[in-house]
Structures are given as C-alpha cells and as structure tokens.
Design a protein around this nucleic acid. Sequence first.
DNA 1: AGATAAATGAAAACGTTTGTCAATTATTGG
DNA 2: CCAATAATTGACAAACGTTTTCATTTATCT
Lengths: 144, 144
Amino acid sequence: MPFDDIAAALRRAGHRVTPQRLAIIRTVLASEEHLTPGALYEKVRRMDPEIGEVTVYRTLNILSELGLVCMVHTGENAHSFVSRPPEHHDHLICSGCGKVINFTGCNIDALEKRLVSETGFTIEEHRLDLFGRCHECAAVTARG
Amino acid sequence: MPFDDIAAALRRAGHRVTPQRLAIIRTVLASEEHLTPGALYEKVRRMDPEIGEVTVYRTLNILSELGLVCMVHTGENAHSFVSRPPEHHDHLICSGCGKVINFTGCNIDALEKRLVSETGFTIEEHRLDLFGRCHECAAVTARG
DNA sequence: AGATAAATGAAAACGTTTGTCAATTATTGG
DNA sequence: CCAATAATTGACAAACGTTTTCATTTATCT
Ligand SMILES: [Zn+2]
Ligand SMILES: [Zn+2]
Ligand SMILES: [Zn+2]
Ligand SMILES: [Zn+2]
C-alpha cells in the first residue's frame, strides 16, 4: 500500500496526520522484514530522535485496526508489524537449515467458505506455514 | 493424547516426571478450552496449592516443544495452550475476543504435493491459523 | 539408602503493552 | 492568518507476561 494512500486513509478515518505518524509509516514501508514495536521504535528514532516509544505503539495499533499494516503473530513474546504486501503469500520452512521459501497460490478459498458457513466467522486473513526439509537437509538426515 | 502417553514421552525425552508436571498435564487434558499459562496456573492451584507459576511456564514450554500440547498464537498478548487432539486440526481465531475454534479437514494435500514437486522439500507438518471475527465481534464492529 | 543432576519456588530482572496527564499541535472555521 | 478546539504527544508509571537466578528440594539411578 503506497504512502499517500495510508496517510489519506488515516485522515479519512478521523485521525490526524502528524509528523510522528508519517515517520512511522515511512519506516514500516521501508522495511522488508517484520518488526516489533520496540525494533521499529529504534529505527524511527533515526528519523525523529524525539519520538516516544508509546507513540509507536499507539500508531501501530491504529494502522493495524484500519488494515493499513499487517500484524503478525510470530510465536515470540511480541507482535510484529509489516507493510501489507502486494500479493498474499505463505511460507515453506526448512527445519534443518532454516531456509524460507515464499509461495503463492495457497488456494484455501473453499476451506474459508466452508468455515464461514459453519461458524459464522468473518475471515480476514490467514497464516500458513509448512515445515519440512529441503533437498540438501533431507539428504543429510537419510545418511545420518 | 492420553495422560500416560504424555508422561511416558516426557520420561523418554530425558525429563523427570514430577507431581507438579502431572498436575499440569491433568489440568490441560481436563480443559476443553485454550488456556494461557496464567489461567492454567489458577486452575492447577486447586489441585496443588503450593505450585509455583514459574513451573507452569517451564512445563508448558517443554510439553509444547515435545509436541505433547498445542500452542496457539491468538493475537492476544499471551499464548494459549490446549491438549493435542488425536487427529490433526487447525485454528480459527477471533481477533476481537480471542476465541479459538478448532477445525479439521484443512485438506492441503494437493498443495503439499505441488510444493514437493516444485521445491524438492520433504514436508512434515504445517500450521494453519485463520484470523477473523466471530459473529458477536463482527456485530460490534459494524455498529461502531 | 546414597549419589547426582534435574526440578522447584521465591524473588527479581526483563521486555511488552497500557493508563494518566500536562503540554503541545493539527485541524477547522471565521 | 489567527484563534478555538480537541486530538495527539511524550514522560512517567503501572500492569502484564515471561525468563533468569539461585538456594533448596526431589526424582531417578546404582
Ligand atoms: Zn535445509
Ligand atoms: Zn495463504
Ligand atoms: Zn469474537
Ligand atoms: Zn491442517
């Protein structure tokens, strides 16, 4: 999602567009990786050394509630946030070497439809991680 | 997973089988819902009032690493744990109230086959979490 | 039963997240 | 542009969730 669209959506939702919020949005957009509020705070400080950590938390909550950034539950003790990617993808992770392969086309629409009708939930997103062993690591295991 | 199997697996992995751990396992097995370590601690205390909260944390980490219980990332600020049912299941999680619904039949075999042939990976397991809003929480959002 | 290393529980350290509040500031409208 | 207004900010502290530390206890093995 482009910078200007995020700022416009913020204003449209009745929030003010402050320099601090713009700095936070820029920093999220500039980073490819998922960042915790704390890590993001450290990065934003380089742009705006006076910014408070609390402002980062508050802004991320707003952006995430408006669907302007993506909140990821990693299993660590803190949430992570990342700019909303252009297209949806999931992960294939090697338990041996840690290699991560992104793939598209998870194709779970039928499953989502089934669950919507069975549970009454509104489904917004999902996270699918497949764990296994890459070719190299599988070979090592077989030998050992 | 039955009580005795969990205890045996614990011992097989080189861990000791203590009364505290048995109480924690019993409590997890007795509860249908996902519980945070804190909530679980309150329940276990009724069986063993002298148990320490730290022991609950440590035990849950061990059980979860050994795959004997299921750790759920709900989007709340704490993880939840639940007994692992005999058959594979995935999670549908409400971003509003944290409610978790288990479902079976994720049916991703075709996807796994495709990825195996495309990447050469051997796939061992997966984690699929769907996030959305339950009927009650969706109503609140629409009203607000 | 005795030796040994793992496990326990209390307290404290640590990181994350939220609440409070006076001071600042983006926005609105004249 | 200026003044009025209400949202936002940042410092501080409080509330959580989780891990570390360490002396004491205890499960396990011989
Ligand atoms: Zn590998
Ligand atoms: Zn997907
Ligand atoms: Zn709900
Ligand atoms: Zn599944």
